[in-house]
Nucleic acid binder design. Sequence first.
DNA 1: TTCGAGGAATTGTGATCACATTCAGTGGAA
DNA 2: TTCCACTGAATGTGATCACAATTCCTCGAA
Lengths: 252, 252
Amino acid sequence: MARQAARESDRAETPAGSAGNGGRRVSARDRVFDEICQWLLTGRIVPGRGVSLRGLAAELGVSPMPVREAIHRLAAEQALEIGPTGRIHVPAMSAARFEEIVKVRVLLEPELAAMALPHIDKPALQALKAIDAGIDRSLETGDVESYMRLNHDFHFGIYGAARSEVLLPLIESIWLQFGPFMRTVYGRMGTSHMVDQHERALDAIAKGDAEGLKSAIAGDILDGMRLLGLAIVGETDTATAGNSNVTAFDKS
Amino acid sequence: MARQAARESDRAETPAGSAGNGGRRVSARDRVFDEICQWLLTGRIVPGRGVSLRGLAAELGVSPMPVREAIHRLAAEQALEIGPTGRIHVPAMSAARFEEIVKVRVLLEPELAAMALPHIDKPALQALKAIDAGIDRSLETGDVESYMRLNHDFHFGIYGAARSEVLLPLIESIWLQFGPFMRTVYGRMGTSHMVDQHERALDAIAKGDAEGLKSAIAGDILDGMRLLGLAIVGETDTATAGNSNVTAFDKS
DNA sequence: TTCGAGGAATTGTGATCACATTCAGTGGAA
DNA sequence: TTCCACTGAATGTGATCACAATTCCTCGAA
């Protein structure tokens, strides 16, 4: 989900700097960064209330220092916003912003998927199918958080195979930007209107059809974002200021 | 060149937190970030030697703290790399990386230019022409650093008019990644082989021709990067390790 | 001359502290 | 009841310190 050393920490099941994780010591900064990324992508942090350095630090059991660096890193990728007075908050979604996000996703993600295609072997394809099955279950049970996590895993399960150093971080950055917004919308409309568009992609991968995969990914993006786009109309400032009664931490 | 508050600081001619810059106080972190960005984009920092936190801090006259945050921000955008042991260095360019960069640039930059086109008024067009004239002078005199700065100003003079919140930061991030590499190559080959391809873009802007502008930008990118691409062949590890005799600070 | 061991200097990391600014809650006055 | 000034809590920022790890240089042995 994150960057560089982060992927190592994903692999390590042991909580922290214990031996056996390949000898690499994971810094608290990266751990905090990954954690906040998760909260953003699964929608545990939603627009509305602000987040505070010391608050996050206390919740994560570290000093404000690593949190500060992780926050600024997120702010650099537009996943968080630092207001004129220095306050940290999740940026509100605007129509223009949303339109740009869709445009970038459609431009970049099919391209990266096509690059990844030759590197997706049989076991990887099976893993993707398993994830997709999980997505169907999440849609049936209406588990939004689980759906978002699995949908993320599906897409990046494909993209990650490309071993990309440039495109992949860019796309990760984009996902961090619409994750919180996606969660608020889905949380309001439920999962009933959502359709799983991943079969076409899986078929194209099985056949090694690059153009088909690109088209499937683009279709999946456009279809999923169309639902979100409908939600943005008429609620131009539901998520702008702190007048909403949703809290930053939606799970409490 | 940078993000958010950075643009405010660009406008303020007064060096630091003096009154009259709109009342906004610029943080040392953003100032340091902008400075290092400049060094990266104009090639003052080149691959080869590493850079150190305390060294930069001393050079910039601040404590290591703001530098640390700026560095990590740059590392998050792949403009700098943090090695397994935590050492900071400019990442080496690889063929695969370079290919991805070109692909992303061709996908995104023409798109953003087309978005910007309706917002470029007469004075802005005149400013672009002035920059282009400066580029021609730099090519004649062989001033690589000046050329790189003006070329950057030309492109972002166009892109900036789009008021983009998503595409623009992405493209800025990409430029930071190939800036240092560009400088090393140009420093070696000189400016004699370079051709100014900006006239087509200026014509398209004057005529309000979106497709023409997209094509001109794409052509400019491909042409400029083709030269760089030629340089990458056969020097696969000239810039990888510290075996080169170029220093990180090329101006000393 | 070459190689390797040992120690000193340097590096990034994380914590704590001091400070200016800002936000929220309370009080009193109109 | 409404509005505004004031005060205390909370926030982000930057600096300094302590520490573990690494790197680099030096000295000595082969």
